[in-house]
Design a protein around this nucleic acid. Sequence first.
DNA 1: GGCAAACCATACGGAAGAGTATGGATGGCG
DNA 2: CGCCATCCATACTCTTCCGTATGGTTTGCC
Lengths: 210, 210
Amino acid sequence: MHLAAPHYKYTGYGYHTHMNVSSKPERTRLSAEDWELAALHLIAEQGVGALAVEALARQLGVTKGSFYWHFRTREALLNAALERWEQYGEREIISQIEQIADPRKRLPELFRRVAHELQPHRVYASLLKALDHPQVVPVMARVSQRRMEFLTTAYREAGLPPPQALNRARLTYAAYVGFLQLNFTLGLPRINHEEFDAYVEHMISTLIPA
Amino acid sequence: MHLAAPHYKYTGYGYHTHMNVSSKPERTRLSAEDWELAALHLIAEQGVGALAVEALARQLGVTKGSFYWHFRTREALLNAALERWEQYGEREIISQIEQIADPRKRLPELFRRVAHELQPHRVYASLLKALDHPQVVPVMARVSQRRMEFLTTAYREAGLPPPQALNRARLTYAAYVGFLQLNFTLGLPRINHEEFDAYVEHMISTLIPA
DNA sequence: GGCAAACCATACGGAAGAGTATGGATGGCG
DNA sequence: CGCCATCCATACTCTTCCGTATGGTTTGCC
């Protein structure tokens, strides 16, 4: 009889000291948060379809008995993990960019920063492939919508008239999403580092108004 | 004992007269081709994950017994369907575009044509979400690679120097892929017709050199 | 130190779906 | 007409994975 709704602490996005994936000497007891983080980790690497409770339990060194104490169902875990991801997704980057004084320097800087941290994009890429699961659609819709709006105002502030700014934001964000898919999901001729930097600069020069 | 490797006819991509999904008065006997086409149809609408043999059989008005006569396994069906799709995918469009005399008019025309036939893109979009299945990766890699090369030469012929042409092709194709995902997979604020046309023109003016 | 509450293991039940075995129906063709 | 190849139905088995039931163990705390 476990109707317990455990304490959601939301201490951010990252790993605890006592949790390490795929090695089991550390046998501290687990919290709901641990399961959510492990779930996100698994989603990033193998996709939403691979999110099975018994597999996760094995990976954490426990059994299903533990899981069903913390969560009512598998869907509950997915929802909790998605909610956590949505909360602590782009917080920092957006606020960092907004602190840049010159509006015309914001977009290039955004492009370069986003380009150089690949890890946070893995979850987003996995979630893109899971758009048939009804639970992820609203989350992705909200996140994508917020980012699009951020891009749109950035383009306006960079000098584009409103209607063009919206379309340019659409184009930019589509290019971002497509790049994710084509590269570390599909593995097209593995672009290397210098080449990638050149690509980013090409993007900047063709998408951002001088 | 059915080791039979049935006759692959490859008569193109489209529906037979005697096959209609989701109504069953027509009870002709089925061929391997029928199963492949039905599979592609199902993939386009519900994704690769929904490709179950019993479900397909129900939809075709037969039972599994039929299926396992034509195919050795479920994977065999997927491979056959993918192969068919790869063969009869972009044949026409590419050849049509190549017949346009002025190289500078090819890209705008390509953009506009691709934009106005949504149906063929549904399979591609579904396959993008199935990039965790190892069977679809090589197919998508080949198809995407071919299209990218086509775009690259088109940009060169339109006047871009080679390195820029490659990056512009990358950008363009990423924008295409991302648009698919963001729109009829995720349902972002459902862009309407005039607005969509305006978006396409915006793409043309920012991505294609004057 | 002992007692709740929190946490976990073990052993089930049940649904879904892949694949197999086998016999029946159907159609061309000699 | 009758036979053989083709096509399909029925009735299984096996596996995987979700969820439940229940009892055991650990931990904070009085």
